[in-house]
Amino acid sequence: MKPDTLLDALNYVDDDLLAWAEEPGTKKIRRFPKRLAALAACLTLLLGATAFATGALDPLLAYFDDPSGLYLEGFLAAGDSVANDTLEIRLEGAIADSRTAYLVVSFIGLDEATAWDLRRGGLDVRPELVYTVVTPEGEELPFSTSTMGTYTTGKSQAISHFEDADLTYVFAGTLPENCSMEDMDQVCLTYEGLSLSLPVGDYLCPEYALDPEGEGLPAVSHLRMSAIGFSYTTTDEELYLDLLPIFTDGTVYESFREDYGTSAGGDSHSVTGHWCAGSPLALAVLDLNDYCGLQVNGVNYYFVED
């Protein structure tokens, strides 16, 4: 194969991978001695993946890394589904914080042709999918940013980690600035007349506001940390934050890797992000009982009750 064929083929790499590779958070690699901790984390992931491959773990753990097990039973399990003659859409799991809602949704072909199209990528459901949030007054709002991704294998075959599903997507929707998921009623996913609704309040994970110890960073305000991510407002759009969770014993989670996306609004700049568990599609879910704050560019911020 000619090398320039490979260069050309890279233009067809999945968008979510390209976007993820561009994220500043994925670039932050720390050098020894932190490598030992990173190695331990990789081994943990590898063991988890091996256990998953042998069927020992819930398939949801391919999408959510929940080592504490706290969230798998409570927040993540969903199970609602809708169907027409050819297609079933099933909600596998969901979790949200005040800014962002994550849904794991499977598509199941109810006839051979639909199943084949889903698995081979011929039926691209993405352009027709609508992912929205509904206020208690019944107003349907678009998310300010919305992304989705799926695992694929060679020759355009999609992978679902759920045995009976043909295709599984992870959906992430972030609210517009100054809105909170706590004030919302439902998140909705609609595809060609099929609509799944989820009472988002049932899936909100723990979250804290954070205050700095002493003088905080001047360009950062409204810092919040949840089990699945973080948010803050900054007046400096170019600001890069190095975020490290602080354990309750005061030590810092040195090997932690972060990943985030941004959305701008007005004079300020609202930034939201999620904890990344080794791939763009796997969300790390932290047990906040183990943490008391975040170290941000070397400045300690601690949880405060809202």
Binding site: A9, Y12, D14, G154, S156, S279
Partner: peptide
């Protein structure tokens, strides 16, 4: 080329994040 791009995607998803990046 499209299929090759998909195969490269699948391969990269099996790699450690920093390697893929």
């Amino acid at each position: 080329l499209a299929q090759l791009g998909q195969a490269i995607s699948a391969f990269l998803r099996t790699q450690p994040p920093q390697t893929a990046s």
